[in-house]
Design a binder for these strands. Structure first.
Lengths: 160, 160
DNA sequence: ACTAAACACGACTAAATCAGTGGGGATTCT
DNA sequence: AGAATCCCCACTGATTTAGTCGTGTTTAGT
C-alpha cells in the first residue's frame, strides 16, 4: 500500500498554492523548482486538478495556477482522488453487493468475508484523508496531538 | 493505494486456516484449490507467514500449515505486515523525526507538513487493520454496523 | 507584430514492481 | 521405495509508474 508520487506531489503542490492563496496565479515553474518536482510531470497533475475544479488556471505570461476554493474547503482526499482516482483500488469494492463475487470462497452465502475488511479500510482511509484540509497543512500544528504507540491494539478495541 | 494480491491472498488463506483451527495441518494444495490461488505463489506467502511466527508448518505426507495462535489473536494487520512489509510505504516515515527531510520544502522549521498526513494515515490504517482479527472474519457478522455515507466530513470533524 | 512566458495535451519510454512459474531440494508417512 | 508435502531461490512476462518530449495555444509586454 504505497502512496504514489502523484499523490505526494499533488498534495505538496496544493499546499504551496494554499500558502499563497489570494496572491493571484502562481506559475508552475516556481512550484516545481521549490518542491523539486519535474515540471512536465507536475503539469499533468495540475491538469487533472483543474478538470476536477480544484484549481483555476490562467494562461499567458503572467499566468499560473491558483486554488479554486479556500484552503479550508479542500481536503487531502479531494486532491488524491483527482490525481489518482479511487482512494482504495480493490476491484470488487466497485461492484454492487449482489454482483458476481470477487473471490469464490463459497462459504458465506451472502457476501465475501474478506471483502468487508477492504470496505472498512476504504471507509477509514477516506474519512482520514477527507478530514485533513490544505489549511490544516499550512499551519504548523501537529495532526497527531497524542501519539498512540503501536502495540495498544487491545486498548483501542476496548475504547471502540 | 491499491491492495496487492499478496495481502488479499494472504488474508484469504489465513481465514481458511482459521476456519479449520484445531484440525491439524492443512495442505496448501487444498487452500490453493478452494481459494483459486496459484499454489506456487501461495507457498511464497506462507513461507513469510511462517517466518513471522503466525503459522506452523509440518512437512511430509500429511503435512501442511496451521495457525500458530488462536484466530482471535491474529489480526489482518499482522498478516499484511508479514507478507508485504510496512503497511504504508512512504520512505520518509521510516526515518527519524530529526533525520534528513524527505521533501525539501524548507518552510516549516521543524518537520515537513505533508509528512504528518502520511503519518496520520499510517496510524489510522494500522489501527483499522489491527482491529480486525481472523476470528472476526470467520463469523458472518458485518464489520460495518452503521454505514456512514461519504459526505459527512463536517460531522466527523465535529465528532473528532 | 513580435517574443517570451506560461498553460494544454497527447505520445513515447525507461525503470520498477507485481504476479506468477519453474526447478531442484528436504522431510515425513505409508 | 515412493508419494505428498514443505523449502527456497531464480527467472520471466505483464503492468504500472514516473517521468520526458514535442507541438501546440494563449497572453502580456515591448
Amino acid at each position: 500500500m504505497r502512496i504514489s508520487a502523484k499523490s505526494e506531489y499533488g498534495v505538496r503542490a496544493m499546499v504551496r498554492l494554499a500558502r499563497q492563496f489570494g496572491d493571484g496565479p502562481i506559475p508552475l515553474s516556481q512550484v516545481a523548482a521549490r518542491e523539486k518536482i519535474s515540471l512536465d510531470f507536475l503539469e499533468q497533475l495540475m491538469l487533472l486538478l483543474r478538470r476536477q475544479g480544484l484549481v483555476h488556471s490562467a494562461r499567458g505570461i503572467h499566468g499560473g495556477y491558483l486554488l479554486a476554493l479556500p484552503p479550508s474547503t479542500i481536503s487531502v482526499g479531494d486532491v488524491m482522488r483527482a490525481v489518482e482516482g479511487p482512494m482504495v483500488n480493490m476491484p470488487c469494492l466497485d461492484r454492487g453487493e449482489g454482483d458476481d463475487p470477487c473471490c469464490t470462497m463459497g462459504i458465506h452465502v451472502a457476501g465475501c468475508a474478506t471483502r468487508d475488511v477492504w470496505a472498512l479500510l476504504q471507509e477509514k482511509i477516506t474519512q482520514t484523508l477527507d478530514g485533513v484540509t490544505l489549511a490544516d497543512l499550512c499551519q504548523g500544528q501537529p495532526l497527531l496531538p497524542l501519539h498512540q504507540p503501536a502495540l495498544l491494539r487491545e486498548l483501542s478495541l476496548l475504547a471502540q
